[in-house]
């Protein structure tokens, strides 16, 4: 379970996240929605312990991510934004490195790496240096790294970004299937994806939660049934123009 309490992040004088609280339980696939710069990635970076929060607290299965970072991270699989990976390594070596740090050894490690390569359909490129991969394959390699140790908690920042329609389908199926027993948080700009895989969605705007509910709840906001797209625009448009501009002038 992930518990986020009054989380805040300040970059200099700019507030990126301004008091976010929520809880996610196993079996939930939570989608973060929100305009560019809303604070989705920053929130994820604080949950994974990469960025220290300015205020507030995150616990992962009751482990505080700031106080007990290593234990908390063992439970988390993380796919950062833009799918970073070591370009000089082959797909296989990269996953092997992650497997070492994740505590696998010998035959078990080889089996893990191979199984993950197969699962993420990376067999064709397993010996290729990551810097020579196409964007979609790189995305999948980083996705593979996140699920390699079968973590109870998955945090994925735009997991289907750059994938072709077939791959999007494969990845969504995997997420939906893993979501049955795991805690999953993902962010996306594709609203149909939210309806397809998320059991719940948070709309974040200007560092605050402006809506929280199942995708069908969100569509029924305001009494009548609308598309998620319309709801999203209504809730975040004001931020987009005035709010974002105002926040950007702060140094």
């Amino acid at each position: 379970m992930i518990r986020v309490e009054n989380l805040e992040k300040q970059f200099g004088r700019r507030a990126a996240v301004r008091g976010i609280s929520f809880e996610v339980r196993p079996g939930e696939v939570l989608g973060f929605l929100g305009p560019n710069g809303a604070g989705k990635s920053t929130t994820m970076r604080m949950i994974t312990g990469f960025l220290p929060p300015t205020a507030g607290r995150v616990t992962v299965d009751d482990l505080d991510v700031v106080e007990r970072p290593v234990e908390a991270r063992r439970r988390i699989g993380y796919l950062p934004e833009n799918a970073p990976a070591y370009g000089d390594m082959t797909v296989e070596d990269f996953l092997d490195f992650v497997a070492q740090v994740r505590g696998f050894d010998g035959a078990e490690r080889r089996a893990r790496v191979s199984a993950t390569i197969e699962r993420c359909l990376l067999g064709a490129v397993r010996r290729q240096p990551i810097e020579t991969l196409s964007k979609g394959y790189r995305q999948r390699t980083c996705f593979a790294q996140a699920i390699l140790h079968d973590p109870p908690i998955l945090i994925m920042d735009e997991p289907t970004e750059g994938l072709d329609p077939n791959q999007k389908h494969v990845v969504r199926d995997m997420i939906r299937q893993m979501g049955r027993e795991k805690v999953i948080i993902l962010s996306t700009h594709i609203l149909e994806e939210v309806e397809a895989i998320c059991t719940r969605a948070l709309i974040i705007s200007a560092g605050k939660i402006v809506a929280d509910g199942t995708p069908s709840d969100l569509k029924k906001r305001g009494g009548r049934e609308r598309s998620l797209d319309e709801v999203f625009r209504e809730l975040t448009r004001t931020e987009d123009v005035a709010g974002a501009a105002r926040r950007e002038v702060a140094p």
């Binding site: 970076r45 990469f50 991270r73 988390i76 070591y86 370009g87």
Partner: peptide
């Protein structure tokens, strides 16, 4: 390259 985000969110100090 952004890999620092990967490296420092692995279970390692």
């Amino acid at each position: 390259s952004g890999t620092i985000e990967l490296l420092l969110t692995l279970p390692m100090t």
